[in-house]
Write a protein that binds this DNA or RNA. Structure first.
Length: 563
RNA sequence: GCGCCUGUAACUCAGCUGGAUUAGAGUGCCACCCUCCUAAGGUGGAAGUCGUAGGUUCGAAUCCUACCAGGCGCGCCA
């Protein structure tokens, strides 16, 4: 449709002696803010210089040259400097609905990633620590980005790169030797590990902690065995949470996996003359790229996470031959990743430019301050989930007092996930955001449950209309709300593509909300069952349901038929 | 000090590859709407010098510069 408009304009402009390239015309075509202004618009401001004329005059002249609108157009009008194209909306609506109902869960796919592979690293919690809200963002955003990539046709490898190596394990080992007990560890591993960590995390123990980490890196049997136990118990705990969040990984990796490769990386760096000694430590100087200095090995001979990230990137590229690798990690690590990517490039790995750090901002508390984690004020993921779930339960019971226990569990779980996921994803990922639990959990207004609710209402209509016979769906005169809804539905594919290009799920989250909002308006002003246009409206409701389902799916949110 | 990011209604946020006379939502506040497909909803109202000052442009919340305020980062943590 757009192509046709471009051709029309191209011809008109040619006749006026203002020949303009197709690309140039396309660049200017836009969608008007309101459907009353048409379906496509062409602003003439940019031609003013070339034609030395008032933009409104130009618009009128172009309109004149176009003459009678071709078949697919209902009308072509001018409004100031704009030429507005009105399409045959009835036909358009019917075709779109047909397409959606035919393509179903595939509606909106661009298939740009066929045959290509993307590695997404996300979540990546630290072993031996509770899964706090700090890792929630990476988990939710990474999950959504994985889904968006898959939707666009890529094959995606989801990696959970556990923080399971580093100096803090020296502290943990020391703490366990000094204050730990096997019994408490079995009983409540995470809590116990957190306790001993806090006790050992003091200046007087620093030296001993370092020694324990060195032992670990050198493969000391006792250290290794304990560490393995910690890792195993933590993983079990994390898996509980991932199950609740409905999130899966293809690979559980970790920083500990790269001990051997790291030696190779060090050797390679040295051979390429990139390593320098500085105060007993090994560094790569990146000052000429404005990236400071990257520390590769500490003066005591142990490694750092930069070293491990280099090794893991190289290994992953060998193993997965990715066309792109995405790191969903907090924005505070921006410099770190720029350094790692630069070093990879300097090592001669051309694929370094396919690595991208997809960052996200911090969660702030309700006063707008960073969450205090040091004083043990950490907020546990499980608590948030349970709190949200019980709130959802109350709401559901109000409406459906007779519902079965199993059904109640299922529904409240879905509502809670929607509340939390949407609450996060509606924000632009790179910005900090306030994590005010009360607001987050609220079920009114711009929230996940609001969107689910509109889906459930749509489902309800379809259920009640089920017994009706089939026939031809005549559109009749389109109602303004119907036009708006159709228009919004048609935007879905481009929203997904945009979201993929920006690696930003918030575009899809906002779209989902707007779609639900328009549907609710339609719901109030356009009765479906019993109306003269029942068949058409039913198909529209069905199409809405499909698109909303696809859209929410990309956010990691499951729809429900009743709520 | 240097680098990156942010500053839009009382609060939380969209909009920011410049464009259509009144800058959008939600929460909260005020007033309506359940004999009607689920009121977790809808309708209307009050509420904004788009951080400040310049600049570019026919046109700026959007681009540029300076300044102010906040966040994050800048060699032995991850």
């Amino acid at each position: 449709m757009k192509q046709q408009i471009i051709e029309i304009l191209e011809n008109a402009l040619k006749e006026m002696g203002a020949e303009t390239e197709k690309e140039e015309i396309e660049k200017h075509i836009e969608i008007p803010p309101s459907f009353e202004m048409g379906d496509y618009a062409f602003p003439c401001f940019f031609l003013a210089g070339k034609l030395r004329e008032n933009p409104s005059q130009i618009a009128l002249k172009i309109r004149e040259k176009i003459g009678n609108p071709p078949e697919q157009f209902e009308d072509i009008q001018t409004s100031g400097a704009y030429i507005n194209f009105f399409l045959d909306r009835k036909k358009l609506a019917q075709n779109l609905i047909l397409k959606i109902l035919k393509e179903k869960e595939n509606f909106g796919k661009a298939n740009i990633g066929k045959g290509k592979r993307i590695v997404v690293e996300f979540s990546s919690p630290n072993i031996a620590k509770p899964f706090g809200i700090g890792h929630l963002r990476s988990t939710i955003i990474g999950n959504s980005i994985s889904k968006i990539c898959e939707f666009e046709g890529f094959s995606v490898i989801r990696i959970n790169y556990l923080g399971d190596w580093g100096t803090q394990f020296g502290k943990l080992l020391l703490g366990f030797k000094k204050f730990g007990s096997k019994k408490s560890l079995e009983k409540n591993p995470i809590k116990h590990l957190l306790e001993i960590y806090v006790k050992a995390n003091k200046k007087i123990y620093e030296k001993q902690s370092r020694e324990w980490f060195k032992k670990l890196e050198e493969g000391d049997k006792e250290a290794l065995e304990l560490w393995k136990k910690f890792r195993e118990l933590s993983l079990k705990d994390f898996e509980k949470i991932y199950k609740l969040l409905n999130i899966k990984f293809d690979v559980y990796s970790g920083e500990s996996m790269y001990n051997e490769e790291m030696k190779k990386v060090l050797k390679e760096l040295d051979e390429k003359g990139l390593l320098k000694k500085s105060d007993g430590a090994l560094v790569v100087n990146l000052e000429e790229y404005n990236l400071g200095v990257a520390l590769i090995q500490k003066s005591d001979g142990t490694t750092l996470y930069a070293t491990r990230d280099l090794a893991s990137a190289i290994e992953r590229h060998k193993k997965y031959k990715f066309s792109r690798m995405i790191y969903e990690v907090g924005q505070e690590q921006k410099l770190h990743f720029r350094q790692v990517f630069k070093i990879l490039e300097l090592m001669g790995h051309g694929w370094a430019k396919e690595c991208v750090h997809v960052d996200h901002g911090l969660y702030l508390d309700e006063t707008g301050k960073k969450f205090a984690t040091r004083k043990g004020k950490t907020i546990f993921m499980e608590d948030i989930l349970n709190e949200t779930i019980s709130l959802a339960k109350k709401e559901i019971q109000k409406r459906f007092p007779k519902i079965s226990k199993k059904e109640l569990e299922e529904r409240s779980h879905k509502v809670a996930i929607a509340a939390i996921f949407y609450g996060d994803l509606k924000n632009n990922r790179s910005n900090n955001m306030v994590f005010d639990i009360k607001r987050f959990i609220s079920f009114e207004g711009d929230t996940g449950p609001y969107i689910l609710y509109s889906y459930a209402r749509a489902s309800s209509i379809l259920r009640k209309a089920k017994s009706l016979k089939k026939g031809k769906a005549e559109t009749g005169e389109l109602d303004p709300k119907e036009i708006e809804l159709v228009k919004k539905l048609s935007e879905f594919p481009s929203v997904v593509l945009k979201s993929y290009n920006a690696l930003n799920p918030s575009l899809i989250a906002n779209y989902s909300y707007q779609l639900a909002q328009i549907f609710n308006e339609f719901y109030h002003s356009c009765p479906v069952i019993g109306s003269k246009k029942e068949l058409f409206r039913l198909s529209l409701v069905q199409a809405f349901r499909q698109v909303l389902k696809n859209s929410l799916g990309l956010l990691g949110i499951e729809t429900m038929e009743e709520m």
